[in-house]
Nucleic acid binder design. Structure first.
Lengths: 227, 227
DNA sequence: CTACTCTGCCCGTACGTGCGGTCAGTTCAC
DNA sequence: GTGAACTGACCGCACGTACGGGCAGAGTAG
């Protein structure tokens, strides 16, 4: 209907991607439990059976959403680490990126964040959980390295990472991508408080937090617009 | 059975409080959607009808959980503000208190935090939402006053409050009250990063963050053990 | 004291609905 | 032919909640 480019039955991934996108939006809006096959199918003008045919179970569908999301986030994280050497730049980049997600892919980001707890509980989420842990480990390592190098004041790197992730992951409950609050401003404020809190001097903090500064620009390049 | 003190039929709130407590625990463990009357009733050895009799609907039950929780938090907040005059002490107190909740009332805290989004969406939650907003306004006012007074560096008080609440509200996804991590240590680390990030000098930061310091002690007195 | 009525707590059951998942079958590209 | 995409009817079940009734204690009249 909105995808007449490729012949039906042989579209890129079939209707698989459409299902994934619509399901993701429903999870973002209502949560996993209240999202259901019937509504998704109706919206896409297909049968419930089609969704089952492609994904098997609802759990598997969610798992695929989480895995795809974390795959992109991990790729970006590695690209950022490769370009930015300094610990305070790297932390700032993670914050800028974390805020960008909320506007670049609002639905997927909200779906991921509000259902993140299922990564720890439910079976079948091992891959996504491992990806999430890998991402967190990257941040912890930067925090630890920075503290070891004296760039950051001594402190518990793991707790600091949780403090930082909390601020970012909580955004789904209050941030409106369509609102007047610019993501760059949110990231800047978060960066300033966080980096100062880690003991980074004022001028490095200001540069790294600047929404038009080098770190933010690097993040913008790496986090390309959605295909 | 475990409540032989008062004659049946005239117990303090009847089985009402038991229902509330058990339902709260189920919401904390499984989330609102997966918590159900059948399991709660079975665990308490009563009929589903009894729950309906006392609360009418499932939504009303959740609303009551949220309202009771926020009432306690608001009372504590006002008590803390009355005892602690300095902005950095007040912010530190909010952080210490926020962490304490996770161990003092783990079930209710998790239930509240993981279902907080329903305060904004669902009807019937107006009271709880107003309480939550009032709590946030208290924190925003402290941050604003501190910035106006020059105790904190200039910055967006509202964004700072959201950054702070994010760290605390996210705790339910990772903090284990029975684990080896002491709540005081978490609060101390969070306080240090946050207060330094707000521009508070190192010695005031250290005093306010100290888990055995005056602020933490004041919080411990105000947040009395459960009755 | 007795008998009665009223009332609030509680039970058991039954109903309606919504949802995840199954399955037999059709269409269509290769 | 072969197999993948897709359909639509259907199943079973879990869950919220409506309903009718039982029962015990309080109040009251005699």
């Amino acid at each position: 209907m909105t995808e007449p480019v490729v012949a039906p039955g042989r579209a890129r991934g079939g209707r698989r991607d459409e299902i994934l996108a619509t399901f993701t939006r429903h999870v973002a809006e209502r949560g996993y439990d209240r999202a259901n096959f019937g509504d998704v199918a109706a919206e896409l003008g297909m049968s419930k059976g089609t969704i089952v045919h492609h994904f098997g179970t609802k759990h598997r569908l969610l798992a695929e959403v989480q895995e795809r999301y974390m795959r992109r986030r991990l790729d970006e994280a590695h690209a950022l680490l490769a370009r930015l050497p300094a610990p305070e730049q790297r932390i700032a980049a993670f914050v800028h990126a974390g805020v960008r997600y909320s506007t670049d892919e609002p639905a997927t980001t909200v779906a991921f964040q509000r259902e993140v707890v299922r990564l720890t509980d439910e079976p079948g989420m091992e891959t996504a959980r491992a990806q999430r842990d890998a991402y967190r480990d990257l941040v912890v390592a930067v925090l630890q390295d920075g503290a070891d190098a004296g760039v950051f004041l001594p402190g518990d790197a793991r707790l600091r990472s949780l403090q930082m992730f909390g601020s970012l992951h909580w955004m789904w409950t209050w941030f409106d991508p369509a609102g007047r609050l610019r993501p760059g401003d949110v990231a800047a404020e978060f960066c300033r408080t966080l980096l100062r809190g880690l003991g980074v001097p004022e001028d490095e903090t200001a540069t790294a937090a600047d929404p038009d500064g080098p770190v933010a620009r690097c993040v913008a390049e790496v986090c390309a617009p959605r295909p």
